[in-house]
Deep mutational scan, measured.
Amino acid sequence: MMAYMNPGPHYSVNALALSGPSVDLMHQAVPYPSAPRKQRRERTTFTRSQLEELEALFAKTQYPDVYAREEVALKINLPESRVQVWFKNRRAKCRQQRQQQKQQQQPPGGQAKARPAKRKAGTSPRPSTDVCPDPLGISDSYSPPLPGPSGSPTTAVATVSIWSPASESPLPEAQRAGLVASGPSLTSAPYAMTYAPASAFCSSPSAYGSPSSYFSGLDPYLSPMVPQLGGPALSPLSGPSVGPSLAQSPTSLSGQSYGAYSPVDSLEFKDPTGTWKFTYNPMDPLDYKDQSAWKFQIL
């Protein structure tokens, strides 16, 4: 009977010793046993002879290597770790002494450095960015050149030099007046198309007034536009458009034309069986010896 009264063996659950049927240790109110408190290391007290050895090595170098620390530790009968900690504390003490010396050398008012006064946003004049500046400075420094007289040679050079070769001289006033084509001369031969040399188009003023001019072949195509416009036809070669000034309004060009419109200028042929003959000019830059190549039959 006494065997049943004795408590059973101890069981360990999660490293906790349980005594038989008792489960009081598993209750929430019972805390787990805490780790033992780490003991504080005792402070090391250095003797005068030990301090002399350490100070002598510190005077040589503030960062001794492990071999120098072990050698000193053997002399003063201390572990190497204590020597390492002593050098660490000695360097910190040396830095603190240097900072105190710097503070003593500075004057009393030198510690508080005078800061520059901050400028207020409204006091300083700042350039306004509302208006974009002129990058080319046209509004201040540029002045347009004065327009020359209508009959000045410089204007003629600016007008005619675009179309004339570089080897030719500017046309005088008398020749510029001949550039304007007359109405009857352009409409006299509506079906004849003559190819003149390129030099005649640039230099010869008579080429624009003769039936064999460069633009005589364009007349049949330009004249039928007159009834559609409801007024006189516009002429690209009329009046002052080739003269001194090219800047004319469309209203000033509306009254200039080749001449009176005639039914002869239409595109319809009077004789459907007729042929169109292209007159060959020996001055043509295209060297075609066979003139029969310039004739064709309209079917």
Rank of each mutant, 00 (worst) to 15 (best):
Y4G: 00
Y4V: 06
N6E: 01
P7L: 15
P9C: 08
H10D: 00
V13N: 00
V13I: 09
V13M: 07
A15Y: 13
G20H: 08
P21S: 05
S22W: 15
S22K: 08
V23N: 02
L25C: 01
A29I: 15
A29T: 04
A29E: 01
V30W: 11
P31S: 10
Y32T: 02
Y32K: 03
Y32N: 02
P36G: 11
R37H: 09
R40Y: 14
R40S: 12
R41N: 13
E42K: 14
R43L: 15
R43V: 15
T45H: 06
F46I: 12
T47E: 14
R48N: 09
R48L: 11
R48F: 12
S49N: 05
E52D: 06
E55V: 09
E55I: 10
K60Y: 02
T61E: 03
Q62S: 10
Y63V: 13
D65W: 14
D65Q: 14
V66C: 05
Y67P: 04
Y67N: 06
Y67F: 05
Y67R: 07
R69S: 15
R69T: 15
E70P: 13
E70T: 10
E71Q: 11
V72C: 03
V72T: 10
L74K: 06
K75F: 08
I76C: 04
I76S: 15
N77P: 14
N77E: 11
L78N: 14
L78S: 12
P79M: 10
E80A: 09
S81L: 08
S81R: 06
R82P: 12
W86F: 14
F87H: 15
K88A: 15
R91D: 14
R95S: 10
Q96F: 08
Q97C: 09
R98H: 05
R98K: 06
Q99M: 09
Q99T: 02
Q100D: 07
Q100V: 09
Q101F: 11
Q104N: 08
Q106W: 05
P107A: 05
G109P: 10
G110W: 03
A114Y: 08
A114L: 10
K118Q: 01
R119P: 04
K120G: 03
A121F: 06
G122K: 10
G122S: 08
G122R: 07
P125Q: 08
R126F: 01
P127F: 11
T129A: 07
T129S: 06
V131E: 04
D134G: 05
P135G: 08
L136R: 11
G137A: 05
I138Y: 05
I138K: 09
S139H: 06
D140F: 13
S141L: 04
S141V: 02
Y142A: 06
P144E: 00
P145F: 06
L146M: 07
L146P: 06
L146H: 11
P147R: 10
P149E: 04
P149Q: 03
S152Q: 05
T154H: 04
T155E: 01
T155M: 10
T155A: 03
A156D: 01
A156E: 03
V157Q: 02
V157C: 01
A158L: 15
A158N: 02
V160P: 01
V160F: 10
S161G: 05
S161T: 15
W163L: 02
P165W: 12
A166W: 12
E168T: 06
L171S: 05
P172V: 08
E173M: 11
E173F: 13
Q175C: 12
R176V: 05
A177M: 12
A181P: 09
S182I: 15
S182G: 03
G183S: 01
L186F: 07
A192F: 13
M193L: 15
P197G: 04
P197H: 08
A198P: 01
A198Y: 09
A198C: 02
S203K: 10
S203Q: 05
S204Q: 04
S204A: 06
P205W: 15
S206K: 08
Y208S: 04
Y208V: 04
G209K: 12
S210M: 11
F215R: 03
G217F: 11
G217I: 09
L218P: 00
D219Q: 13
P220W: 11
Y221G: 01
L222E: 01
S223Y: 12
M225T: 01
V226P: 02
Q228C: 13
L229F: 03
L229D: 02
G231D: 03
P232R: 05
S235L: 14
L237V: 05
V242E: 01
G243V: 10
P244K: 11
P244C: 11
S245Y: 08
L246F: 09
S252F: 11
L253S: 02
L253D: 01
S254G: 04
S254H: 02
S257Q: 09
Y258M: 02
G259T: 09
G259N: 03
A260F: 15
A260K: 09
D265L: 15
D265G: 15
L267S: 00
F269H: 00
D271G: 14
D271V: 15
D271Y: 14
T273H: 06
T273S: 06
T273C: 04
G274Q: 01
F278L: 11
F278V: 04
F278N: 00
T279E: 00
Y280C: 10
Y280M: 07
N281C: 14
D284R: 14
P285F: 07
D287K: 15
D287Y: 13
D290K: 14
D290G: 13
Q291R: 14
A293K: 11
W294P: 00
W294C: 00
Q297A: 12
I298F: 02
L299H: 00
